[in-house]
Design a protein around this nucleic acid. Sequence first.
DNA 1: GTCTATAGATTGATAGAC
DNA 2: GTCTATCAATCTATAGAC
Lengths: 211, 211
Amino acid sequence: MNRKSTKEHILDNAEKLFARNGYHSTSMRMLTRKAGVNLGAVNYHFGSKKDLIRSVIERRLIVLNKKREELLDQVLARANQSNSRPCPREVLKSFIAPTLEFRDRFPQAAEFPKLISRALTEPDDMVRNMFIEIMTPLFHKLFESLCLALPVLSRTQVYWRLHFCLGSMSHVMNVAERIRIIPEGVEMPASQSQLVEPLLNFITAGMERNP
Amino acid sequence: MNRKSTKEHILDNAEKLFARNGYHSTSMRMLTRKAGVNLGAVNYHFGSKKDLIRSVIERRLIVLNKKREELLDQVLARANQSNSRPCPREVLKSFIAPTLEFRDRFPQAAEFPKLISRALTEPDDMVRNMFIEIMTPLFHKLFESLCLALPVLSRTQVYWRLHFCLGSMSHVMNVAERIRIIPEGVEMPASQSQLVEPLLNFITAGMERNP
DNA sequence: GTCTATAGATTGATAGAC
DNA sequence: GTCTATCAATCTATAGAC
């Protein structure tokens, strides 16, 4: 019955609660009640609440970033082989597709995207800084790839447009399902994966626009 | 010396703390310490913590939305007079310009934009629902104006592109100054107002893109 | 209107039995 | 590894003096 280790069981439930309610609003007792484990066990396995959320985030984010970087490297390699610039849409897609398809690919971790889409605005300094620290190398690589893909734009322009892209993506990940009031005639997607192409259409047009 | 009423003094400090740390991470004691008032006084004036943040948000957001709607009405009226469709960029600008210019216009409320940019992901249901309730009428009006401005797009397409726009804006309001690592050659704007035109360039291109 | 004092519940973390 | 029991701190909210 209990196939997963207690440690993983705690991580799974903590992931859901932190994603839904945020770090500060999730108490250790809420977690132990939901996970059906003992308060002492959490502290035995993770030491502290901060170390727990660190483990929760790293467990998924490092894997996700590996996938993103792998796809980005493929785009860069293809451009290199044909002696051309990387395609802006493909560069953006390497980051966005694995993110919005995450829930379909890992249904057991369906709440995780909410967690990272809120990580940058997390009130707790340690949580926020840990997230930034993990993301920084890939952010730089993504930024430089876009500069290469869009030589007409200044580095400052690319920088802000990249942030606009990340903001759109982040908003979709967290907000899409929280909004209850839908105007007449608007159809909701069955999953976030279906928003990859609409989002790429939108941000690629914004990225490629002449200054 | 103490020109402002105690009530306003509490609101000003609560606004800063809720914006910086979020609702749950801000305790009433943190607030009374910072504001230099008594714990009893807060409860006398506002009744509860929930009623306090409600007052904090309503005080600014209702005024801001009035300004946004006023500008939107002007855009719609101009289109009506010339028997043409409203301009997508102008419609978007009516919402975005007052938002990103808010800090320059009301320096004493400079932290408020952070608060509303996080309101949709607020863990507390009451806070989130109150925000949605206030925003709903204007959101619908904005949505219908964009449908009118972009007859080529389906209502579903307009809906999601509008969310992409709001995500970009929200990200800029909250994240811009939290990020510490800036790539070489990137210049930071002196204020958020300077991002209005770059953001409008970006999202207008995305909005107007052929399906 | 503003204060002190405190109730009553909940928090993160630990000590020690098993 | 897992449990109970408990500490010390913090939380929101209120009662009542001034």
